[in-house]
Simulated assay, not measured.
Amino acid sequence: MSSGDNDVIRAAGCVLWRRSPYDDGLEVCLVHRPKYDDWSHPKGKLKRGEEALAAALREVEEETGFQCAPGARLPTTRYVAGGRPKRVDYWAAEATDGGFTPNREVDRVAWLSPTAARHRLTQPRDKSLVDALLSALHLA
């Protein structure tokens, strides 16, 4: 790790998906964060010594209430947050069990079709992750 890597905020998350209970279509879970009034994929910062995938699965459960089975690695996003570079590693993850309860960080979740999810996401960089999920699931 070069000395420049110490300044990078490390985070991880998942593009959480399930088969619709109504029509078996693909649904993507988005989280609404009242602090930022935005819609995004569940993600969060790594704890000291934590592996990225473990952090991603922990954040999904903390933010959505769902356990999930991780799948394909998705593209990493990089951007500047609060004047510092941030790197977020993502995985596709199928929701396996659980249920949402509003909390301090996330007040709502939405299970949406890929097209609706693309439209609802606040950040353009998050929209491409929906396409990456479809590609990983061989649905693109």
Rank of each mutant, 00 (worst) to 15 (best):
A11Q: 07
Y79F: 15
P70Q: 02
E51L: 09
C68K: 02
R19H: 12
D7V: 05
S20E: 07
N6L: 15
G71R: 02
W17K: 05
L74A: 09
Q123H: 14
H32Y: 14
D37G: 06
L16I: 06
Y36H: 15
A93K: 08
V60K: 03
K47H: 13
P42K: 11
L46V: 07
T64K: 01
G83P: 10
S20V: 05
N103E: 03
D7K: 10
L30Y: 00
K127E: 14
K47G: 07
E61D: 08
L53H: 08
G44C: 11
A81R: 13
V80C: 05
T96Q: 11
K86T: 15
G83N: 09
L30M: 12
S20F: 06
T101H: 06
A132R: 05
R78H: 10
L139E: 12
L30D: 03
R73T: 08
A52S: 14
E27D: 12
D5P: 02
R73M: 08
A72F: 01
R118D: 06
A136R: 11
L46C: 10
N103R: 14
K43Q: 13
W111I: 06
E61S: 04
K127W: 10
E105F: 10
L30I: 10
L129D: 00
P85Y: 03
F100M: 05
S20I: 02
V31Y: 00
A117L: 05
A116D: 15
R118P: 01
D107M: 04
N103S: 15
G44M: 09
P34A: 08
R10Q: 15
L129C: 11
I9Q: 07
L53S: 08
L46S: 06
A132T: 11
A52M: 00
P85N: 06
P114F: 01
L137Q: 06
A136C: 12
R58K: 11
Y79P: 01
H41D: 07
A110N: 03
K47W: 10
G13H: 07
D126P: 00
G13M: 02
Y36M: 10
A140D: 15
E62H: 13
A81I: 10
R58M: 01
D38T: 14
T96F: 02
L16H: 05
G25M: 03
D7I: 02
Y36N: 11
W39F: 10
D131M: 07
V15E: 07
S113W: 01
A93L: 03
